[in-house]
């Protein structure tokens, strides 16, 4: 079966190390959670895996081949949902999906019915022909998710996909991720929301300052670190400051100005 393997991925920006020697595998039907605080290198890793960013060192192999040897072929099998849904603001949602679908060379009738289907299921039919500039962040995120799934990819990378989504859409997304995995898709799910990761993912990778500090199933990590929840595991692995103390100091600072 096709397996995605990131091998010692590293990235430096102007000499600053952002990601260091990240190694993991992603199998069909598996959902790997990718956790880490802000600036830990999650998005950089996701972009490197998607082939949007060249690693400073290391490789990504899919199906036993280095993806950079034929990025076009790899991307045919990839769906990517980025953290920031940057889209062409002057296109309508429908036009954007048409652009992506046509570039992916999806047959016109299939593309048309898929676009109508996605827009309908995401409750975007009423806004389908409005320009994206008038969309809320959640609406843009739904367009991005539609564009990523339209071509039935084998691997899907979700980079904080719940940003801007309402409660219903977040719940739907959670089920969608589970369903996609059950249909054999390999999923890398990067998120801040521990509750979602805990419910959705089979395995988690925890990243801290560019290093992988944990790579195991949630149950194993819980028992290994003697914590009852993922939040506890995460706190022990990456949180250096006491969040309660920090919150108290912030509240004090806020009342000082008043």
């Amino acid at each position: 079966m096709s397996e995605l393997r990131a091998n010692k991925l590293s990235k430096h920006f102007s000499g600053v190390r952002v990601v260091k020697d990240v190694t993991f595998t992603l199998k069909p039907g598996e959902i790997v959670g990718y956790l880490g605080p802000n600036g830990s290198g999650k998005t950089t890793t996701a972009r490197m895996v998607a082939g949007l960013l060249e690693p400073s060192s290391g490789t990504v192999h899919y199906d036993g081949r280095d993806v950079r040897e034929d990025l076009v072929a790899f991307r045919r099998r990839l769906g990517y949902i980025p953290e920031e849904p940057f889209l062409y603001p002057f296109l309508s949602g429908r036009e954007y999906l048409q652009l992506v679908g046509r570039l992916r060379e999806m047959p016109e009738p299939v593309l048309g019915s898929k676009i109508d289907g996605f827009l309908g299921l995401f409750s975007l039919s009423h806004a389908a022909d409005q320009s994206i500039s008038s969309y809320s962040k959640g609406m843009r995120q739904k367009i991005v998710i539609s564009a990523a799934l339209m071509h039935d990819p084998e691997i899907v990378i979700f980079d904080e996909p719940e940003t801007g989504l309402d409660v219903t859409s977040t719940m739907m997304l959670r089920h969608l991720v589970r369903l996609l995995a059950s249909r054999g898709k390999a999923i890398l799910y990067s998120s801040h929301i521990l509750e979602v990761v805990e419910k959705v993912c089979d395995r988690i990778l925890v990243l801290h300052r560019g290093d992988v500090v944990a790579d195991d199933s949630i149950e194993s990590l819980r028992s290994l670190m003697s914590k009852s929840s993922l939040e506890g595991v995460f706190a022990q692995l990456v949180i250096r400051d006491d969040p309660e103390q920090l919150a108290r100091e912030l509240a004090d600072l806020s009342s000082l100005s008043a």
């Binding site: 998607a50 949007l52 076009v72 991307r75 045919r76 990839l78 990517y80 980025p82 940057f86 889209l87 062409y88 954007y96 652009l99 992506v100 679908g101 570039l103 992916r104 060379e105 991005v144 564009a147």
Partner: peptide, 9 residues
Amino acid sequence: WGVRLAWRA
């Protein structure tokens, strides 16, 4: 990025 991901040369 959207075009790059969908690009088929």
